[in-house]
């Protein structure tokens, strides 16, 4: 009996040591690490060429998910510009990354407009949209974010509130990092390089 308990104890200790040994993350991340916290990438939308796409079309790439809209006055262009600058420091590795810009204003953001907009930031930028607002809301909800429309002014222009964060997924589509509006280019570049080089 005593020996049994001793063996059990030894196994427990060994397991505990083993687990902590494995779970120790050798990588240092500059951005917020969300590994194991958020849902993997999954969607069914239309890209800026009018093609139906899902998460599987971006398997093998590091995917950066961002919810925005092309009429966005400040947050979206500055965020996308920071991503673009980070990618420009990565050389040929930049092609292993895709920035998925999901419009939360599909009424104004046609596929053509999305294409012109995302192309201006670089070849890795893809515009995604759906006219189905319920689907768009469900996709936002999956990442626990929301969007809302402001009142239109005299010219019919309106603001859209949306998430300011970039959700970063690895090559297998697992949620790994969040880049916030306050994270700078070197931090984003550092973590993207680390993620691309396979971890």
């Amino acid at each position: 009996m005593v020996r049994k308990i001793a063996t059990l104890l030894a196994i427990t200790v060994a397991c505990a040591l083993g687990v902590t040994g494995c779970s120790k993350d050798p990588m240092k991340w500059d951005l917020v690490n969300i590994t194991g916290i958020m849902e993997p990438l999954a969607f069914s939308l239309t890209d800026d060429h009018g093609q139906a796409v899902t998460q599987d079309d971006y398997r093998g790439k590091v995917a950066l998910l961002y919810f925005g809209y092309t009429h966005c006055p400040d947050v979206c262009p500055t965020t996308l510009a920071r991503l673009s600058q980070a990618l420009s420091t990565m050389g040929s590795d930049a092609d292993k990354v895709r920035v998925l810009f999901v419009t939360v204003d599909p009424k104004r953001d046609t596929a053509d407009l999305l294409k012109t907009y995302t192309d201006s930031f670089g070849p890795q930028f893809v515009g995604l949209r759906t006219d189905d607002l319920d689907r768009l809301k469900a996709f936002n909800k999956r990442y626990r974010v929301t969007f809302g429309y402001g009142k239109p002014d005299a010219d019919g222009n309106y603001e859209v509130s949306h998430s300011s964060a970039v959700f970063i997924f690895d090559q297998q589509g697992k949620a790994r990092l969040i880049a916030e509006a306050t994270d700078d280019v070197p931090a984003i570049a550092h973590d993207l390089k680390q993620l691309v080089s396979g971890n």
């Binding site: 809302g148 603001e159 998430s163 969040i178 306050t182």
Partner: peptide
């Protein structure tokens, strides 16, 4: 609590 910026606030 910057997470409310990440999630998007319910209204501005």
């Amino acid at each position: 609590y910057s997470v409310y910026g990440v999630c998007g606030r319910a209204w501005p």
